[in-house]
């Protein structure tokens, strides 16, 4: 009985386009939902999570000395052979890199150098905007690597940003208080 009733109801629904009306109501509702578009680079920028593997950076120890001991383990483990390290010995007898170059054009950002490093000297940070017109500019030397931004702390958020055409860096963040982008997506 109820089955037959369902069938009749389905037919009545079809006759009056219940399914089409449902679809229209759904799309109408979505028209007034919050947009998930991130207005990068005009207004917003995505700050990656702390585990994000972006541009490499070299760390310093508490005395301000470079942590790297130039053991060349990173160069050994690198699957695309893009790290070149030349060591030297300073006056105290410590090993440090005289030259530490990463060819980011060839790097595949696997993070193995970070894992291999015995001195916790190299890591992959949060920066992801380093496009260039020349592949030669993508070979980053020791001193540049020391100045690169570290791991993200406020990761997983959208922050206010604006287009900056005067510097090489496209986006300059002005505040660090982000809102949680994923939470704002409407779920129905």
């Amino acid at each position: 009985m109820s089955h037959a009733g369902d069938k009749v109801g389905t037919w009545i629904g079809w006759a009056f386009f219940a399914d089409l009306a449902n679809a229209l109501a759904l799309t109408f509702g979505y028209m007034f939902s919050r947009s998930v578009t991130m207005q990068y680079p005009d207004k917003e920028k995505w700050l990656p999570y702390a585990r994000y593997r972006g541009h490499h950076f070299l760390k310093r120890d508490d005395e301000g000395e470079i942590k790297c001991v130039a053991c060349e383990l990173c160069a050994k483990i690198c699957p695309c052979d893009c790290i070149e390290v030349i060591p030297y010995e300073d006056e105290k007898g410590n090993r440090h890199p005289a030259k530490f170059e990463i060819d980011t054009a060839r790097c595949l950002f696997c993070g193995l150098c970070e894992d291999a490093c015995p001195a916790d000297a190299i890591a992959l940070g949060q920066q992801y905007e380093f496009s260039s017109f020349s592949s030669r500019d993508l070979v980053i030397g020791r001193d540049d690597l020391l100045g690169k931004p570290g791991k993200a702390t406020t990761g997983g958020a959208v922050v206010a940003a604006r287009l900056n055409t005067e510097h090489d860096v496209l986006v300059e963040t002005s505040e660090l208080q982000g809102y949680n982008w994923w939470r704002n997506i409407r779920r129905t």
Binding site: Y30, M31, R34, S35, V36, T37, Q39, R186
Partner: peptide, 12 residues
């Protein structure tokens, strides 16, 4: 309208 129905913003 297309953009907002699809949760985008359309031309901005």
């Amino acid at each position: 309208i297309a953009g907002h129905i699809q949760q985008r913003m359309g031309p901005m």
